[in-house]
Simulated assay, not measured.
Amino acid sequence: MFTHQDEWNRGYAEGRRYRPLDDDERSLLAQHVPAPDGGRALDVGCGTGELALHLASMSYTVDAVDWADAAFPSTDARLDDPSHGSVHWLHLDIERANLSQLQADGYDLIVLRMVYAFLRDRTRLSRTLGRRLRMNGALVVITPLAATTPAERRGIALDEDEIAHLMSMWDQAQRFNANGMAVLVLRGLKRPAVQITNTPLPQPSSVTEVHAVVTDAQGRVLLGRSQQQRWELPGAPAEPGEGFEHTAVRALAEQTGVTAEPADAHVLGLHLDAPDGLPRTSVVVRISAHTKQVQSLKPDEFGHVDWRPLHALRRLDRLPTTSARALDLIWPGVLPYVPSAHMYPIDSAYPPVPGESLQAVARRERMADRVIAGGWAPSLPVQQALRAVPRHRYTPESP
């Protein structure tokens, strides 16, 4: 199961609290993972910090990490509790972020309490964390059980097969019960049973293109005029080992002078087609924040770069299929007759950015269809105007 970051933020901001640490858990931690001299612990998904503070009271120095902005104890609570001095609070996405902020010399204890079920790639992260354990260190996973969890909340729990797989990865794996939850104490990460080797590189048989969609404060989209006299979105082929977000940011800066951070680049979907028999993947990346300087830095690619209003896109003389599909993914209906392709949406949870909303474009298209079908707009220029003009902007007080 995976939930969006803003859902956790909203839960914490609304005062929602999760199952408190109970005496059974405290007893098991004291018995099986007491703090050695100079002991360091990592609390993954620390939430409001109850477990991190308890580990500090056991004499651990604790790194407490969570990806939700609204997690962690309040400032007043930190000042009131002297054990906070032994806790270092880190805002960190443990699965995606660079882990250089964690202790380079490792940890004696790493705890994932009511977190493991929410991870997207559990096996990989378990091994990543296992390699950060010091000698005789332990990974402790505390989790609800699927068998005793209501069906509508199944996503917070692990079933027996999932627990067996996790325990099989370790030389020493102990299981205990704490008031209905499983407490797994794991030591000695095994080497993977399957050894992964490099696959011989085949002859090129496909191409992957990344397209960056950027709008300014007026909602105009950034396009470049190529040497082939086409209007195109900034973009480039993905380089080996480079994430799509980084490719989009790199191409944007190299071609237009507009700079952005990979954290503000959001992969929204993939289009698959095969022009001339060559499989092609077109990746659509939405940029939610950027600097506004615009200049053509690669005249051999873009002879001219400019912001274009959405309602004027229909009047462009030439627009490549891949750019048209990317625009249509974000603003369905803003372009007529976009050639179809296999489309795989990935994410739509990105911060609000200036521009015309998906709903505005779709509703204007439906309105234009009804007016034209009713015979009330017989001339082509009027039909084009009905589809192009963002009329909701003239009534900003309306919903």
Score class of each variant (00 low, 15 high):
189 L>P: 08
149 T>Y: 00
358 L>H: 15
233 L>E: 05
75 T>Q: 11
141 V>M: 14
347 D>K: 08
292 K>W: 06
13 A>R: 15
83 S>D: 12
207 V>E: 11
251 A>R: 08
92 L>T: 14
240 P>Y: 04
151 A>G: 04
85 G>N: 08
355 G>Y: 00
312 A>T: 13
51 L>Y: 05
95 E>A: 15
279 P>R: 01
199 T>N: 12
274 A>W: 04
315 R>K: 13
394 Y>K: 03
304 H>I: 01
167 M>H: 04
336 P>Q: 07
311 H>R: 12
54 H>L: 07
347 D>W: 04
263 A>W: 08
362 A>E: 15
113 R>G: 10
42 L>C: 00
114 M>F: 02
314 R>M: 04
327 L>W: 06
336 P>L: 10
338 V>T: 13
226 S>A: 07
293 Q>L: 05
174 Q>T: 12
63 D>M: 12
157 A>S: 14
162 E>A: 15
48 T>F: 09
152 E>I: 08
65 V>R: 06
141 V>G: 12
132 R>C: 02
229 Q>G: 04
246 H>M: 12
163 I>A: 02
230 R>Y: 12
181 M>P: 00
56 A>S: 10
145 L>N: 05
112 L>P: 10
97 A>Y: 09
206 S>E: 07
25 E>V: 03
254 E>R: 12
213 V>R: 11
